[in-house]
Design a protein around this nucleic acid. Sequence first.
DNA 1: ATTAGTTACTTGCAATATGCAAGTAACTGT
DNA 2: ACAGTTACTTGCATATTGCAAGTAACTAAT
Lengths: 130, 130
Amino acid sequence: MAKNKAYGTEKDCLRSMCPVSSVLDIVGDKWTILVVRDMLLLGKRLYSELIDSPENIPTNILADRLKRLEAAGVIEKQPYQDKPVRYEYRLTQKGEDLRPLIKELAVWGNKYIEGTMVPPEGFMDKPYQP
Amino acid sequence: MAKNKAYGTEKDCLRSMCPVSSVLDIVGDKWTILVVRDMLLLGKRLYSELIDSPENIPTNILADRLKRLEAAGVIEKQPYQDKPVRYEYRLTQKGEDLRPLIKELAVWGNKYIEGTMVPPEGFMDKPYQP
DNA sequence: ATTAGTTACTTGCAATATGCAAGTAACTGT
DNA sequence: ACAGTTACTTGCATATTGCAAGTAACTAAT
């Protein structure tokens, strides 16, 4: 992992002006969408909640993806306590708008990948309710 | 690149039974969806056509992704001539069904990534017509 | 007051994947 | 015979990932 890498300050440039490839330049890896999934569908906001997924995201990857998502404007980080200062992460509207994409992923997965869990009716559509 | 790697024969296993993560286990990288995009939206079928994208996919990556997509049942490879034997790649129904996902990628990209090209009305919805 | 946790990360380093250039097999055309 | 083309494969440098261990800043127990 690069030491203290700052995202957005340099040329993290797009490969082309195709909207499809441009989105993949932001969320096109095996972990980023899973972080958004947990925030969107399960209402997770804390590092401790996000680290706790069935896919076992490594701690350094989670920290890195939170930084990238913040730099991309998909999430926002805000302190929710002092001593020690701790942050929570929330989806922006930009992040919320990834919902239809995540829903289509789930639809295709349920149709073509045997054994995948089918979410309850309406689960993908509404904001998380505890 | 691994020498002559055979996909599907070993444990290329899923990280969890979540449909979202399972789909990402198949198409969750920066290149795979772009190959499907070109087949779906531009009707490309030949290696020579697929290598010719604005994102400049490396030749070894294209060859690798075609193998993976075939192993995953998203595309099919068939010979279309002898001497020399040459193959064309076609989307299966499983591949065709990635269309809504690719459409959502484009919608989000056009909404949030400045300067991305907006496809003509209906372009994402119909099979390719020359 | 020291010691033992806990949380939210960061760092080091080995393993894996990517990207570029060059090589190759099997042709075609001159 | 020789150059050119196509569809890849191979080698190797670089970048990304994944695991384990380390750390700062606390809290709670002895």
